[in-house]
Write a protein that binds this DNA or RNA. Structure first.
Lengths: 184, 184
DNA sequence: GTGTACATGTAACGGGTTACATGATTGC
DNA sequence: GCAATCATGTAACCCGTTACATGTACAC
């Protein structure tokens, strides 16, 4: 049985269904397109695929290759589809709590030089802008090249979430810097 | 030595400095006021305090009590202040990636009934509104009762972050629901 | 007398990262 | 020749949660 709380296995199952069949391509997909709300390492992917197969949620097609590790392609089984569907219908239990190093530092910044805080905000904001542009690029790419893909509307929804949240965060950075400068 | 990557110990050190001296009160504080960007369990707090003390970053004052566990009050040492300050000045390395169950589910929702997705969004939005109101309440409380507290301006900054992000998320929920209804 | 807040702590477990091992192919 | 990409996998480790253990004091 899959542990109810562990969403990572469902993410993998979902990607198998979407059409990614190897550990490597699953990693690529998550790094490239789910990276604003999910991440994963090989140390999780390969053991997970193995376990999914052992428990009948996925089937594996092994292609032996000389002087290379076997190529393994995994496919979701009906049993896997069933459990994935069930998970997709289960209501969201609780809001995520994101640990945020910047906020933690600001929280304790009373005795710090205000310029240090402003600098933290600056570098943070820069990273946010880069992130925003990346998301915009991906959205553009989906809208132009993947129009026919049936999953596309849902990918756009999650991207819009990223764009929207990142923009709000950028705005907050600007506001906060203004406030700090005024106090000085 | 404190591991550079582990911010939790610095959070505890920061709270010692702010004036919280027992494991219990640290837990209270984090649950009550840092909960939108940090969380912690007793299973981490007590061992951490012990380690901070062993390594000279904190000093402990033990008050023995009959038929109760000893009361232990921890205080940050000069060495602790030094390392805290150094950490506060270190630049933020990377943006947090928040794992989000709702987005993960939406990402894979192609074959799902659209009403399921809308319902997920509804319950999520409700939770967000509750969260927003909580933050507003805390902000109100700080503004009225803790005006003199020197840390207050920085607490407000992190609260504003929470309010700003939560509002953006609520707006996204509304937009997304509208879009989904239209597609139906 | 029951539940809640105060108060400290440990052990087992689970989830995830990192470092390592191995090797082919392709482009600069 | 060197770096990057393709490709699979394991072991050690770290961080954090949960469940458990223990007990007082106070309010309803």
């Amino acid at each position: 049985m899959l542990a109810k709380e562990n969403h990572t296995q469902y993410a993998i199952l979902g990607l198998l269904k979407t059409g990614f069949h190897t550990g490597y391509s699953i990693k690529q997909m998550i790094d490239g397109s789910l990276n604003h709300f999910w991440k994963i390492s090989y140390g999780q992917i390969y053991p997970s695929l193995k376990r999914l197969e052992e428990e009948g949620y996925a089937a594996v097609k092994v292609t032996p290759q000389e002087s290379k590790p076997d190529k393994k392609e995994y496919f979701i089984t009906p049993k896997g589809e069933q459990i994935l569907k069930k998970w997709l219908q289960q209501p969201i239990q609780e809001l995520p709590i994101e640990k945020n190093e910047l906020l933690l530092k600001l929280f304790f910044s009373r005795n710090q030089d205000i310029n240090t805080s402003i600098q933290h905000l600056d570098t943070y904001q820069e990273k946010l802008i880069t992130r925003y542009n990346t998301y915009e690029g991906i959205k553009e790419m989906i809208n132009t090249q993947l129009m026919e893909e049936e999953d596309a509307p849902f990918w756009i929804i999650t991207l819009d979430y990223g764009l929207c949240m990142t923009q709000a965060e950028i705005d907050w950075c600007k506001d906060t810097k203004k406030k700090l400068v005024k106090e000085e």
